[in-house]
């Protein structure tokens, strides 16, 4: 394909990538947005989760060329450095929803997607919706609490 155009975190970008480049590699190696992480080979850990047109997807299971003309949001696009955190990020901080931080970008991005689809989800809903995201540190309890609180804060925002 050669050059592709897409929107990443609100900015138009042009990428020159091989056809077999995964979206996660385009983000990490070409755009140097290293927040999305690669934690498995089978698209199960969810550490690579980003949004395409506002929907959470696994960027390790999508080619960069498949994102042509689409709007991609990564963890880096939620709040600029120095600006206040997005309510979901803030809720992860307030609820100690992260430890080593490696799965965290994926967790925050799926958390926002859960909030989009469920408005104010309860803990049971959030646990079910985290089917595609693995964390080895937290035991999930505080992640679930963070997403419940973050979703409520997002709902309360104008």
């Amino acid at each position: 394909m050669g050059k592709i155009s897409l929107e990443v975190n609100g900015e138009d970008v042009e990428l020159d990538v091989a056809d077999n480049t995964l979206l996660i590699h385009a983000l990490r190696d070409h755009l140097r947005l290293t927040g999305a992480h690669m934690g498995c080979d089978t698209s199960q850990c969810g550490a690579c989760t980003v949004h395409i047109e506002g929907q959470a997807i696994k960027s390790c299971a999508m080619l960069a060329v498949q994102a042509e003309g689409r709007s991609v949001t990564t963890i880096e696009g939620l709040a600029d450095d120095g600006e206040p955190l997005h309510p979901m990020q803030q809720a992860f901080h307030d609820n100690h929803g992260l430890q080593c931080g490696f799965c965290t970008p994926g967790m925050v991005m799926i958390g926002i997607d859960i909030a989009r689809r469920h408005n104010v989800p309860d803990a049971a809903t959030v646990r079910h919706e985290l089917e595609g995201n693995l964390c080895r540190c937290t035991g999930y309890q505080n992640i679930v609490a963070a997403i419940v609180e973050g979703a409520a804060k997002m709902e309360a925002q104008p």
């Binding site: 929907q55 299971a61 799926i110 089917e131 595609g132």
Partner: peptide, 9 residues
Amino acid sequence: IGDPQVRHR
């Protein structure tokens, strides 16, 4: 099917 991310694709 799968998980939310998989269902989106």
